[in-house]
Computed example of a mutant assay.
Amino acid sequence: MNISMDDLHLFVLTVQHGGISAAAKQQSLQRSKVSRRLQELEKSLGCQLLIRTTRKIELTENGRLLYQQINQPLTGVAQAAKLLSNQQKSVQGVLRVAVPAALITSNMFALLLEKYLEQFADVQLEVLHCQESIDLKRQNVDIQILPDGVKVQNEDYVQQTLLRFPSSLVASQQYLQSHPNITELSELTHHPLMVSRYNQASLPDNLTLRLCSDDLRLIQHMATTGKGVALLPTILVKDALKSGELSQVLVNGPLPEIKLTLIYPSKQFLPEKTRALITLLRDSFTENNIS
C-alpha cells in the first residue's frame, strides 16, 4: 500500500472546501489533476471515498471514517489508511443486503444466508425489506436484489441477471373439485386469481383478481386454503405440488417468468465480504442448483 500524503491533503481540502473545484483553486491546480489524484488515493486504499455529482461531493462511509481519522494528529493518518485497506480485504463487519418481501420469505434465500453465515462467522448481516430500487451508496447498502421490471435508480451500478424463475398456476384440490375445469387461459375469467405485482402485468386484463401481494407466502397460503388460483414461481411451490397440497393448472400453458437482478455499486471497490456473498448468489441461483 503506497499512500501519498499530498493526495491525503487534497482529500482533506476537498472535504473542507466542499468540492474538487474549490480545492483545486485553493492549491492553484487544475481541477482535472485534483480529481485524478483523488482517484489514485481511492485506488491505493481500495475503496471509494467520495460520491461525485455535478454540483457537489459527498463522503461515503469510508470517506467519513478517513476524514475523522485525518483530523487527529498526523501519526494517525497511516493507521487510518491501514484500517480502510484491511477492512476492504477482510471478511468481517456489517453487510447490508436489500431484497423484496417475496425473497425474504423464501426457504431458498434463507438457506443461502445460512450458508454464508456459517462460512463467514465475523460478518453481521443486515437484511432490509425493499420493494423499489434505492441509492446504495447514499443509503450505505452493499447489495440489492430486485425482480425484473423495477427500474434501477442509478444506471451506473453493476446489474447482473441471476436467474429466470418460471411460474405455475396452482390451486388446492378442494378448490378444483368445486369449480369449473380450466383447460385454457381464457377460462381463468371464471376464477378468482391471486398474483404478485411482478407477474400481474403479464396476465390478460379481463381476469378477476382476488389478491395482489408482494408476499408470495401469503398468496400460497390463500391458494392452499381454497381461495382461488395462484400464479407463483414454480420453485416456491415445488414441495406443495409434490405433497399434493396444491395442484398445477394449465401445465403446458405459456406463463410469465420472474427474473432476479443482482445490483451493487461498483466492481472496482468491492469489499471481500461483499464479493463472497455475490459469488454465493451466482453459484446458488442456477438451474442445476435449484432444480
Rank of each mutant, 00 (worst) to 15 (best):
K33H: 13
D6C: 01
T208S: 12
A24E: 08
V77P: 00
T54W: 02
K227S: 15
E132H: 08
K242A: 15
K259M: 09
L176Y: 09
Q131F: 00
E126M: 08
V77D: 00
F120D: 08
P180K: 05
P204I: 05
P166T: 13
S168R: 10
L162Y: 06
Q200D: 08
R31E: 10
Q139E: 14
Y198K: 00
V127W: 09
A121Q: 13
L65P: 03
L163E: 05
L38Q: 03
L169S: 11
S196D: 10
Q87E: 14
V170A: 09
Q248R: 10
S266G: 05
A171W: 10
T224Q: 08
Q153D: 04
Y175E: 13
G76R: 06
P73M: 04
T274F: 02
Q26D: 04
D135H: 12
D148K: 05
K33N: 14
Q177D: 12
G244I: 01
K33M: 13
Q268P: 03
T208N: 07
Q153N: 01
T75M: 11
K151V: 12
T286P: 00
D122V: 06
V237M: 04
S44T: 13
P100F: 02
L113I: 07
G46H: 02
Q144H: 04
A230Y: 09
Q139A: 12
L241A: 11
H129E: 05
M108T: 10
I3P: 00
E272R: 08
V249M: 08
T75N: 09
S243T: 15
K242W: 12
K115I: 12
F269V: 01
I57T: 10
V229Y: 06
D148R: 04
L111A: 10
L136V: 02
N199W: 04
E287L: 11
S35T: 09
V170C: 12
L103A: 02
K267V: 14
E187A: 12
S213C: 14
N62Y: 03
N2L: 06
L29T: 11
S168Q: 07
A240L: 06
S284E: 04
I57G: 09
S202Y: 03
L176C: 14
R52P: 05
H9G: 05
E132D: 07
K238W: 02
V229T: 08
L29E: 07
D214F: 07
V251P: 04
I290V: 12
M194S: 06
E155N: 14
G46A: 07
S213N: 13
F11E: 01
S291R: 03
S178R: 15
P233C: 03
C212S: 15
F165C: 06
R55F: 15
L260M: 10
Q268N: 07
L112V: 08
V97L: 15
L188N: 04
T189D: 06
Q144L: 02
L162D: 08
S213V: 15
H129D: 11
Q119N: 09
V249P: 07
G149Y: 03
L169R: 11
A78M: 13
L13C: 12
R36Y: 11
H179V: 13
T261A: 05
Q27C: 15
I57A: 08
Q119A: 07
A110Q: 11
G228T: 06
Q174Y: 13
L262C: 05
S266N: 03
H190M: 10
H129Q: 08
F165T: 01
N86L: 13
N86D: 10
I70R: 00
K267A: 14
R217G: 14
I70P: 02
K25C: 02
